[in-house]
Design a protein around this nucleic acid. Structure first.
Lengths: 341, 341
DNA sequence: CTGTTAGCGCTTTCAG
DNA sequence: CTGAAAGCGCTAACAG
């Protein structure tokens, strides 16, 4: 053993008690100093801080939070980390959190309501200051727990229906509607739809509904739809595009459930020797970085994912209390005019 | 108010006490039942569970963990969520965790040692059963805290040097070396290097060292290097590739710091009308999904990110105690033979 | 500016 | 199989 014997013993835990003893003050004073709250004589503070350093004291938040009846925890539930969308929401959350003393606890539901329920239960057990969940749909038990929980509840990504406390996101139905309107105005008449498994993805379904409505108002509809039974990926986007064109070779523009799928469509066309924009036009959803850098920039609809995460945190930082009426914050969406549609 | 008055009052918190009172048993018994530990009469158990349901009781883990002196928390620290690499590690972690009763608390360091230090301090305050950090390099204070902490410590991603407790990952130096060897064997002699800002990215630096060594052993070296001062992205990969070729038009193969950068290189070539594989060959690192689906599949080196996360969790689940000697677990790497090099 | 006194809600012996 | 008592480590009043 080469370590100096003066190092704190790893066995014996150091608590406020040890620090107080060493610094010759009360535990309260130590606590006050650690929390940077109340006023303390400079001389005392230094004595205590020296003891803290000497002992390598780290306050136990379990005890602190239990005593003060409030944690600095924010529980976060996202459905997936498979594509870059939710990591970007998480980045927004981290950005919003930085500077605050809050800490995020993240779990992944895999788009499954039962999993969501057990994770919400697990999160609430920590008495978080807030819980951020994805979407406005949950099962009965989850909704009840969230409604009854003492902290704030933010439902992220969509504002299409009424939230429990506050919702931050966009209107997916409108996004779908505007997508179809945009393409109709560009003169397209032969529409196809390519999607991942949107069964568990209510927001993708809402967008599809909006598109269908706009088309129907124009006396049109999708000539063909090609839906996978797996989560979205570039690979499955390629496969589903091939399938769409086999089934309906006269499709002139394909709307995709999201950018990952759309990029797959772009790659399919490149390989099949199809000219994108004339043989087949492509429109995505999300506005991911990759779309901007494709040889022909992807036409798509930007969702403001980072902003959603950041705004969600700003909301809960603003007030520890729920508003009298549920609030919806629309982070909007914009058409990204690319070269593929 | 349309809610039934029989619903539990949202104001008054329910604790073991309330449940015990309603079920006519002691708090101890309630606690035992909630923890599924020790033996209880079936009749009693049912009475208690009914009370639990009626009151909507959720045990407070803060109190529980404080009393039992151990949490089911796993603290996780990753440097970034910008590209899909670390989300995939997190997926592995979640996968390893599912079925266990552990919960992950994740934070992002932004490749900054000082940030890492404060986050490690913040995590340790929750008395986690384990902490998973990225990489084997930390600042002095962080290393000390990790060494002295009571739980397990896993250092993820690399095994190039000696860990504190257990390291799970690959040898990045060897990966770089093998990359260059592979390309040398294919007959390449004019090498270029394209990178993001690898200052804070020790693993990318190790790979670069490995490449340089292999080249030097062959009496060669990089003709030109093009390094950005920003994090990796497809966009910056494009820009840096253009810059490399301006500076050194005779480069025949470019090795990239990772796949994001390499995909940018591919897109640059497509736009510039360069034939990939003959005008310029491209080699990445990571083996991301997108590379497999490019019109010409990307030649790259697969890192097993999901496996790293999953293995890290398996290690800490295996034993709550640190091994006598630090352990390194090599998750390996493999050349992915694509069409770009 | 500092200390005293009570808990926070749960788990843990240890008896019965 | 069940309960009583004694904390876990910290913070919140309230005095002084």
């Amino acid at each position: 053993m080469k370590s100096k014997d003066r190092l704190p013993d790893k066995k014996s835990k150091v608590t406020v008690r040890e620090v107080a003893l060493l610094a010759q003050v009360s535990e309260t004073t130590v606590s006050r100093i650690m929390r940077k709250e109340g006023s303390v004589a400079n001389e005392t503070r230094e004595r205590v801080m020296n003891a803290v350093r000497e002992l390598g004291y780290v306050p136990n938040r379990l005890a602190g939070s239990l005593a003060s009846l409030n944690t600095n925890l924010v529980g976060v539930l996202v459905p997936s980390l498979q594509n870059i969308v939710f990591p970007e929401v998480l980045r927004g959350i981290q950005a919003g959190l930085s500077g605050s003393h809050m800490q995020a606890v993240t779990s992944v539901t895999d788009y499954d309501f039962a999993t969501e329920e057990s994770m919400v239960r697990g999160l609430l057990a920590w008495n978080p200051a807030a819980v951020l969940v994805t979407g406005l749909n949950h099962n009965e038990a989850t909704s009840r727990m969230l409604r009854q929980s003492s902290g704030r509840v933010v439902e992220m990504m969509e504002v299409d229906s009424e939230p429990i406390d506050v919702a931050v996101g966009m209107f997916h139905r409108s996004a779908g509607y505007e997508t179809a309107r945009y393409l109709l105005q560009k003169g397209y008449r032969h529409f196809g739809y390519v999607a991942h498994d949107i069964g568990p993805d209510r927001r993708a379904r809402l967008r599809h509904e909006g598109m269908a409505q706009a088309l129907s108002e124009a006396g049109l509809g999708f000539i063909a739809e090609s839906r996978a039974e797996t989560p979205s990926s570039i690979g499955i986007g390629k496969v589903m595009t091939a399938r769409l064109l086999e089934r309906a070779p006269d499709v002139k523009v394909a709307i995709y459930s999201n950018d990952d799928m759309a990029v797959g469509g772009v790659f399919h066309c490149m390989e099949a020797g199809l000219s994108i924009g004339s043989d087949l036009s492509i429109f995505g959803f999300n506005g991911l970085e990759i779309g901007r850098h494709l040889p022909q920039p992807l036409s798509t609809m930007r969702s403001n994912r980072f902003l959603i995460g950041k705004t969600a945190i700003e909301q809960i930082l603003q007030s520890p209390e729920r508003p009298a009426e549920p609030v919806r914050i629309d982070t909007g969406f914009e058409i990204v005019e690319g070269a593929t549609a």
